[in-house]
């Protein structure tokens, strides 16, 4: 009981209370003001860009993350442990460092000759970088536990490698994959640090919601959180919660019968 009490209290102080404060602030001027704040052309454009970029990132991450997890679990190659450790790098380094790396790589003196600063593709690249570990680290342990003999059984029954992946492996890693996708998406929609130096922050063009919120705060001389900043934050929060919940429900449906 003590554990439950401490846990609830901690969760309340650290998570729920701040969220409640922002939610209250967002409704300072009533629901009309909230709606106006999130439907300004700049806010709508920023949200659209944020969602599309995050969706692309989540889908690309699903494919590449599964592939990387597969290689790390099933293949043997020199330097495997190093590569495995490298996966966590985007978690470990400050996101502003990621932004600087991208600025160096794709800026005006790009060693690659690629000038992507203040374009939409650089946002996707930055988000791909910071969300890399989510799908890999979700899928990897499930793949390690997967019953290889079930795959061999499918092969003896005539299933091609593609069929084995589609009908045996994918359903097995499905719940973990969905959870990885959800985490990557949720992280991507709120990402700020890795895009701040590279996306140019051009309203209605390359400005994502997190930067729009930052812009609202800066325009307020006394640094007070206004309805515009709070309302757009709440929208991001709601989207993240809904996506995570929906994927969790989908995952638990899929894994109903996996327990041995």
């Amino acid at each position: 009981m003590l554990g439950l009490g401490v846990g609830s209290l901690w969760l309340s102080i650290i998570v729920l209370l701040p969220i409640a404060a922002v939610a209250a602030k967002s409704l300072d001027g009533g629901f009309g003001a909230f709606w106006d704040a999130v439907t300004t052309p700049a806010a709508r454009s920023a949200l659209g860009l944020t969602l599309v970029a995050s969706a692309i990132v989540a889908l690309v991450s699903a494919v590449t993350g599964t592939l990387i997890a597969w290689v790390l679990v099933r293949d043997e190659f020199p330097g495997k442990r190093l590569v495995n450790a490298l996966i966590d790098l985007p978690f470990a380094i400050p996101t502003i460092v990621a932004s600087i790396v991208l600025l160096t790589l794709y800026g005006s003196d790009s060693p690659l000759g690629l000038h992507l600063i203040a374009t939409r593709p650089i946002i996707v690249i930055a988000l791909l970088f910071v969300t890399l570990p989510f799908v890999v680290r979700s899928v990897q342990p499930v793949l390690m536990e997967a019953d290889r003999e079930a795959e061999q059984a499918a092969a003896t029954l005539g299933a091609s490698n593609l069929t084995i992946f589609r009908r045996i492996i994918l359903p097995t890693i499905g719940p973990a994959l969905l959870s990885g996708i959800g985490l990557a998406f949720a992280r991507a929609i709120g990402e700020y640090g890795s895009v701040v130096l590279v996306d140019g922050n051009i309203p209605q063009k390359t400005q994502v919601t997190s930067q729009y919120i930052q812009g609202r705060l800066e325009s307020n001389q006394d640094g007070v959180v206004d309805v515009g900043a709070a309302a757009n934050s709440i929208v991001l929060l709601l989207i993240a919660v809904v996506v995570l919940l929906a994927l969790r429900i989908a995952a638990s449906r899929g894994s109903r019968h996996h327990a041995r």
């Binding site: 003999e149 061999q152 059984a153 003896t156 091609s160 019968h257 996996h258």
Partner: peptide, 22 residues
């Protein structure tokens, strides 16, 4: 010839059941 085309039936010690299928 790969196992897919050998027309064999194989049974494993630990069943190798497809756990997500009835």
């Amino acid at each position: 010839i790969p196992p897919q085309r050998r027309e064999i039936g194989f049974v494993f010690q630990h069943y190798a059941a497809f756990k997500h299928m009835n």
